[in-house]
Amino acid sequence: MSDLLHILDILRPYVAGIALLSGGVIVLIGASGVLRLPDFYTRLHAAGVTDTLGTLLVLLGLILLSGFTLLSGKLALVGLFLLLTSPAATHAVANAAHKAGLKPRLGTIQNPSPDEAKGDAS
């Protein structure tokens, strides 16, 4: 039993590094999605990728690095705040756009160029 714990303790920094790096890559993918996707409503989904899985992986890596301390508790609190507030903020932006009459592009979109749907800059 203590051997198993010992092995887990040796593995911990590596798992933390993998979590951190994959979290960073997923945040970058989400950011590139916000650039590449064609209109406002589809960009919301790319931002959602960053808000959920990217946040979770980066914070998980940091918690694994810090071990069971007050710092890891604070990091978990940061994650809890982010996961509670990000859907509310996303819904607020989407609802404001919907109420203001911004129409989404529906149907099938192939190979969109990033700024195809140019609206009037309000």
């Binding site: 999605g33 790319a46 192939q110």
Partner: peptide
């Protein structure tokens, strides 16, 4: 559910020929 949906959306973003079917 969030992890499963993340994988679907990430795969969609990373496609070179992006095909989107937005719906309301």
């Amino acid at each position: 559910e969030v992890i499963k949906a993340n994988i679907i959306v990430i795969r969609t973003i990373l496609q070179p020929d992006m095909v989107l079917t937005p719906r309301m």
